[in-house]
């Protein structure tokens, strides 16, 4: 099983690298930010596989952190690079960003 897990992990790493080459070519900054999303899914899958293949349960915590951080990277990008916080098209004064509370 360990061998199979390692093989699958290697394959996922390959798809991740190929995708990164595509993302590196851009051209728009938003295209490049897809890398963060890529790490949020492929990276998490890769780390979960390695946690079992290498018998290192701590890698599962790394996977969780990566998933959470990938969103923060996007939030930072969206507010700083694209400047979405600045109203661009006549938005209403009472308009507020969607917030989550349960």
């Amino acid at each position: 099983m360990t061998l199979i897990l390692n093989a699958v992990a290697a394959f996922l790493l390959l798809t991740l690298l190929i995708a990164l080459i595509r993302i590196w070519r851009g051209p728009a900054p938003a295209d490049r930010m897809l890398a963060s999303q890529l790490f949020g899914t492929t990276g998490v899958a890769l780390l979960l596989l390695l946690a079992h293949a290498q018998a290192m349960p701590a890698l599962m915590d790394v996977a969780l952190t990566l998933a959470v951080l990938s969103v923060l990277a996007i939030v930072a990008f969206v507010t700083r690079v694209v400047r979405i916080d600045r109203p661009s098209s006549g938005r209403k004064a009472g308009d507020q960003p969607e917030t989550h509370h349960d």
């Binding site: 999303q37 949020g40 996977a63 990938s70 969103v71 996007i74 939030v75 990008f77 969206v78 979405i84």
Partner: peptide, 18 residues
């Protein structure tokens, strides 16, 4: 990871849309 992916997708889509 699912929640992160959905949120990221929406945020990037929003940025590209705006």
């Amino acid at each position: 990871a699912l929640a992160a992916s959905a949120t990221s997708a929406h945020l990037i889509a929003r940025a590209v849309h705006v």
